[in-house]
Amino acid sequence: MKSILEIRGLKASVEDMPILRGIDLTVNAGEVHAIMGPNGSGKSTLASVLAGNEDYEVDGGTVEYLGKDLLEMDVDERAREGVFLAFQYPIELPGVSTMNFLKQAVNSVREHRGQKPLGAAELLRLAKEKAALIELDTRLKQRSVNQGFSGGEKKRNEIFQLAMLEPTLAILDETDSGLDIDALRSVANGVNLLRTQERGFLIITHYQRLLNYIVPDFVHVIAGGRIVRSGDKELALELEKRGYDWVQEELAA
């Protein structure tokens, strides 16, 4: 099986406070990995570090992405190489039209892949198709990026962009937080439709709930900046039942 992501002993800190204390994780093509853990355990930090957020300092370890050193790449380079982050709190871009934004993003990625840039008509057609996939209100495309969107709309918009950019590695950072059950279902639906043999998913979540809809191949529990337990989807159910204290207690014991 082809490996997409190899994380070895990754350590990272924010403002001199260590958050990740040695993460080891391998994601292969076609796999869905769920990363769970209590608040402050470092799961969102992992997502930010992988995406290249400069607020986080990498203190050690390596990240290999498709055989290349991911940590050496700039944020936009990573994105063009196929790393996509669905933000926990998507950013509003006042005055920037969604279609214009998509055009630039899609064509940057396409150009990098040696594909022809899409014209306006092709892009519109593609956008329409992908929007249907995740039941995105097409009117949102006419607005400025994320501006005035509800929480649910923002999250759907993230998955919509995921669909448009067709990444190799998709990282979903607490995409389920703040979603009502209908939105959760349609977001999960969209993600399931986007699961392919070539693509790997890293799904970061606090609750097991999302995993009822997106069934992971692997579940990892992060606590104190390390992966303390790995298993299959049963682990998520056990966590749901026994809470995070269980993992931490077991660890302490």
């Binding site: 990573r78 933000f87 006042p94 005055g95 039209s97 934004f101 962009q161």
Partner: peptide, 24 residues
């Protein structure tokens, strides 16, 4: 960061955001 995470280069992101700033 958001723009760049979508593959848009730094220059293009600045242009995009500045145009957005004036759009109104």
């Amino acid at each position: 960061f958001y723009c760049q995470q979508r593959g848009i280069s730094e220059q293009d992101a600045i242009k995009l955001l500045v145009s957005g700033f004036c759009q109104e």
